[in-house]
Write a protein that binds this DNA or RNA. Structure first.
Lengths: 251, 251
DNA sequence: CGTCCCCTTGATGAGGGTCAATGGGCGTGG
DNA sequence: CCACGCCCATTGACCCTCATCAAGGGGACG
């Protein structure tokens, strides 16, 4: 099932009333600090599927936190080759890579109807000097982004197609669970093509690998809907014996 | 030529007298702010080739800035697969990925005799709340790390062996130039094996690609010593028409 | 001078890319 | 409500790049 549609009333919820605040920037903030953060956050109308949040080269002025829905980000080089660098779910923050250049090095597109909290970066920086716990959390989130990119590097540099797909599914499963959804049955908002690009594989390989994982009884894919049949074995295949270890997780 | 050996006297140079400060953390700091930063930095004796700066799982308490020499960092997963995530030259900063977990997710090994500035992270965080320009620079450096990892993702996800190697050489060339060395003639401190691992290729493929690039008159590799014969064409092959664009650069 | 390690080069094969055809939802319009 | 068309996904056949296996060269260092 897709994440439940969010009523417009809840779209404007303040951070301290937002059920995501344990997954998001406010993590670790006192209540009154959270109110300060809340004051600078802008909540606009939802983006439709396929709509750009920002594009490569756009001036950077704010971070984007997913409130509901999902987003893909991709960078492209001068040849036009595109690489999806991340899928972002509720509570996750985009735009951290833009701080350095002052402009966005990648583009972000909504994968479904998606609502967003925009956090003006200059205000956030100012506030961070006054709230050490906010500065700390901001640094932690950037650090996590690095860790996740590096986990993806291992995947692309060292792993077979099957290992990559298994790791991807395990990662999505863990992230679904963190958001209160079933870890064993969920919908992927991204296409096979997107998954393939993200994992450095072609759409055909993704499709074949899904089929094979189904044949050996690990998953049961029905188009976008994924049922994980044998979570233990899937994790073993992914090379992640225990719980999540890298890629985009949360907290 | 390897970067010139640094006399011990210069090892203890304060930030404001360090010729690297335009490439390093102090970038953008006023002179007296730089002195504040300087007070918290620790400069230990050089690491020998092959020596660990820190290892996967070590408690995180400081960032590591390269003063001279070079370092490789690599992460490993539960299967023991290793992926080199970066090569760090003078002025570049390691350990940013450890902020999130509070322990190092990767290991760092000196590729040659290397001197380091250790920056205790709790002190740095405290100082950052007092010096907005330091906080800003810290965020910029973390952001740059993300951008560079994402450039490597494009390389691993989308590019052929030849394109990867060409991009790697162009990147090294640009970084050498930023440090005042010749961009057309320099020494690689890392082995072919390390380059291969970094680029998601085998040592044999690296060797063959070097040979081929030599045959078509783009480079002239003599073991560790690389001469770039046709920089323009090499950049074109790398898909980087103009100047540097991604991977680890500096500033 | 010998040994070790790193690098180079060649031969072979597999994993996954490419090309092509078919199937199945879903949205749109009649 | 149904029909059409489009897009996404699946599956098969073939091929290419790069990994693997193997052998040999050449510095560096004792």
């Amino acid at each position: 099932m897709t994440p439940p549609t969010v009523k417009l009333s809840t779209l404007k919820t303040a951070c301290k009333n937002c059920k995501l605040h344990q997954l998001c920037l406010p993590l670790g903030l006192e209540n009154n600090d959270m109110e300060e953060l809340d004051k600078i956050i802008k909540r606009a109308k939802p983006y439709q599927k396929g709509e750009y949040l920002f594009q490569h080269g756009d001036n950077f002025d704010a971070l984007y936190a997913v409130r509901s829905g999902s987003v893909k980000t991709y960078s492209q080089d001068d040849n036009g080759d595109e690489q999806i660098t991340g899928f972002y779910l509720a509570g996750e923050i985009m735009g951290l890579d833009a701080v350095h250049q002052g402009s966005h090095p990648c583009s972000a597109i909504a994968l479904e109807t998606t609502s967003i909290c925009k956090i003006p970066f200059d205000h956030l920086e100012n506030l961070s000097t006054q709230l050490p716990s906010l500065q700390h959390q901001l640094l932690r989130i950037m650090s996590k982004e690095i860790t996740e990119d590096q986990a993806l590097l291992i995947l692309l540099g060292q792993k077979s197609a099957e290992e990559r797909v298994a790791a991807y599914l395990v990662n999505m499963s863990d992230r679904m669970e963190k958001r209160g959804f079933s870890p064993l049955e969920f919908n992927l908002s991204m296409s096979r093509k997107d998954i393939g690009n993200y994992l450095g594989l072609t759409i055909e390989t993704i499709s074949r690998t899904f089929s094979h994982l189904q044949q050996i009884g690990l998953i049961n894919p029905q188009r976008k809907h994924i049922e994980i049949v044998d979570s233990v074995e899937l994790r073993r295949l992914a090379g992640l014996p225990k719980i999540a270890c890298g890629m985009r997780s949360t907290a």
